[in-house]
């Protein structure tokens, strides 16, 4: 530490000066008998010199003490300064985050509205049935997108207010996963992706809330598709792991830089947070996923390599006999 180095220096200087004076004095006392004393030697031997020396030593000590004290204060000041700067930066980044949340949310809500409104405007003037059908398709797609975004916001609001109602029941995961995978079929085809599933037909039951488990799966599989490259693949696998069942969703997408990996579960965090980011989304999906998985007593982990893809795994506890009793009792 810088401050400690300074302390050491002052102590050494004080020590050198005071010891120099003492040695000087001893030398003159020793030498005085061997030759004629000069004026300086006389002075050094006089009571004045003794008094000065005696006063000087405690003075040196005192000044050393105050130097140290000042130093300590300076160190504390530096620390306080650093803390203040850090706090200011944090405040600024909160402000920036707030702004980016506003623009994300408004972008995600207004873009589908723009599409729907413009399509309606054109459809009203359109006679050709083929074009009309195309406009209606756009309206449907944008309304779906809008609805999904509103759902995410509402789900988030619920979790925020501590109103996540988990109704635990014994769940058979394979058919649930298959069903969610099927929901994404149109998106998978549109992006020319391949989806590989490694799901044993028979798995032990897990303890979970059906709608919430689906929400987690939808988010992870949706992300695996959204962040994938055209022609890439998505993998979904399930396996038993101790007292848990582990579900993994992997993709061959853009991946996540290592320094951003531990932040992706934060609310409103976006790996690419620039106002011009490539991938839409409100930035709540993974935060919700993490809350839900943890509320189940499970864990979620992520591995990723930029440019190669990401793999998200979450666990759900196995259903035990007494879970049923607890549910019945509660």
């Amino acid at each position: 530490m810088k401050a400690e180095r300074h302390c050491g220096r002052y102590v050494i200087i004080a020590f050198l000066i005071s010891s120099g004076i003492i040695f000087n004095l001893l030398y003159w006392r020793f030498e005085r008998l061997s030759h004629e004393m000069t004026f300086y030697e006389h002075f050094m031997m006089s009571p004045v010199a003794g008094t000065v020396t005696i006063l000087l030593i405690p003075l040196m000590c005192l000044s050393g003490y105050y130097m140290l004290k000042e130093l300590r204060l300076r160190v504390r000041l530096e620390e306080a300064n650093r803390e203040l700067t850090q706090m200011y930066q944090e405040l600024k980044s909160v402000e920036e985050m707030r702004n980016s949340i506003i623009s994300n949310v408004s972008h995600e809500l207004k873009t589908p509205v723009t599409i729907a409104l413009n399509a309606v405007e054109l459809a009203l003037e359109e006679d050709d049935p083929e074009s009309l059908r195309e406009f209606l398709g756009m309206i449907r797609e944008s309304l779906h997108r809008l609805n999904m975004n509103i759902d995410t916001l509402l789900e988030y609001a619920k979790i925020q207010s501590g109103d996540m109602k988990l109704r635990f029941e014994p769940l058979n995961l394979p058919p649930i996963i298959q069903k969610v995978v099927k929901e994404f079929r149109p998106m998978v085809i549109k992006k020319k992706l391949e989806i590989h599933t490694d799901i044993p037909p028979v798995m032990p039951l897990v303890r979970g809330s059906r709608e919430h488990v689906k929400l987690v799966l939808r988010n992870l599989i949706g992300n695996a598709i959204k962040f994938n490259v055209e022609g890439g693949s998505v993998g979904v696998s399930v396996r038993e792991r101790g007292d848990f069942v582990e579900v993994c969703v992997s993709d061959t997408g853009i991946g996540i830089p290592p320094e951003k990996l531990d932040r992706i579960f934060e609310r409103f965090y976006q790996v690419d947070s620039s106002s011009t980011r490539r991938h839409g989304g409100i930035g709540l999906g993974l935060a919700i996923v993490k809350d839900v998985v943890q509320a189940h007593g499970g864990e979620i982990t992520v591995e990723s390599e930029p440019g190669k893809g990401s793999k998200f795994c979450f666990t759900l506890p196995l259903w035990r006999e007494d879970d049923g009793e607890a549910a019945a009792g509660g």
Binding site: I115, N118, A119, F135, M138
Partner: peptide
């Protein structure tokens, strides 16, 4: 525009 639907619609209008 990066949004395909907006491209199509705006283009049609213009």
């Amino acid at each position: 525009d990066d949004e395909p639907n907006i491209r199509t619609l705006t283009r049609t209008m213009l």
